[in-house]
Every structure is written in C-alpha cells, then in structure tokens.
C-alpha cells in the first residue's frame, strides 16, 4: 500500500474531452470502477473515463479528496456532502449522478439523487418535463384525468418561471 512506501500513489484520470487529472489512489478507489481497474493492474498509465466530461470529473475529484480526508464519522461526512452539493444547479447534479453511476460510487450516488429529489420536491410538472427532457405523451384528456385524480398534490407547487 501507498502508506507503507511513504509516497502516496497517484493515478491519472482522463475525461472524455481529454482533460487529465491527478488524484491520490486512496481517494480515487472510492469509485468501485476505478478500484477494479487498479486491482486488475490496468491503472499503470492513464485511466480513460469515457462517460465523464472534464468539468464533472473535476467536481467528482474534489468530492473524492474532500470525503476521504474526513475520518470515519458519518455525521461529518454527511455535512460535507450537504455542503458540497448545496450550490450545484440541476444540470450539474444530473451530470454528477450519471458520473457517480458510471464510476460506481454509491455514497455520491445516494447523496446526489437525494439532492435532485430535494430540488424537485416543490417543482411543477412542466419544470420536470423541461429539465428531464421528457415529452408529454398524454392526450389532453388523459392528462386532465390524471391531474384530477391527485388534485391535492398540486397545492403549494412553485410557479414555473424560474430557470
């Protein structure tokens, strides 16, 4: 292990837009995908991550470094995650959930999907369609019927004009 040799092992990760990042192996192996590569001995050179762009990867690495610096204290880790995600917008969060899924990082995956849900909680149906890129495949009659069935759930929804 790195600690025994005295010099921490560093990995080089490559995003799909060809940006290179250095990260300590001990932090990077939070990703099961990367850990498997390291264990299989494929981590000697540059590790290409074809599904993650540079901007998202930079963010994920910030998270990896931040969370692995915290000792085993679930409360502190949680507050770090909350703070880390607090200023991210929906698009960034969506990119991160995809990256966390691809990198197989369950702690980040859980935190980001919970954060996205928190953002969605008071949003309108129209907002969700726009942000998730979903086409409304209901006929106007069908849609009205579904809405009528759960009328009370439309109370307290934010108005639609924000981003």
């Amino acid at each position: 292990m790195a600690a025994e040799t005295g010099t921490p092992t560093t990995l080089t990760l490559k995003s799909n837009d060809d940006e290179l990042f250095s990260v300590a192996e001990s932090a990077a192996i939070l990703s099961v995908t990367i850990r498997n590569m390291v264990e299989d001995g494929c981590a000697g050179g540059v590790i290409p991550l074809d599904n993650v762009d540079g901007k998202t990867l930079a963010s994920v690495i910030t998270y990896m470094n931040g969370i692995s610096a915290i000792p085993a204290d679930e409360e502190k880790k949680k507050s770090y995650r909350d703070k880390f995600l607090s200023d991210k917008d929906f698009e960034t969060l969506a990119d991160m959930v995809l990256a966390a899924n691809y990198l197989n990082m369950s702690c980040l995956m859980d935190a980001v999907s919970a954060k996205i849900a928190q953002v969605m909680e008071k949003k309108s149906v129209g907002w969700v369609r726009r942000k998730f890129g979903i086409e409304n495949d209901y006929t106007p009659e069908e849609e009205a019927a579904v809405k009528e069935e759960h009328k009370w759930t439309f109370e307290g929804v934010e108005t639609d004009d924000d981003n």
């Binding site: 999907s113 969700v128 979903i134 086409e135 495949d137 579904v146 759960h150 759930t153």
Partner: peptide, 20 residues
C-alpha cells in the same frame, strides 16, 4: 433511483409528467 427519494405527494403529482 431519484424518484424513490421523493415524497408521496410529489410522486402523485409527477404521475402527470408522462406515461412512462
């Protein structure tokens, strides 16, 4: 996975998003 984090109220509202 994201939807499983939402409240029941919110899930019922988002039944209107699409058939899927």
């Amino acid at each position: 996975i994201i939807l499983s984090n939402l409240s029941v109220k919110c899930l019922y509202r988002f039944k209107s998003v699409s058939k899927s």
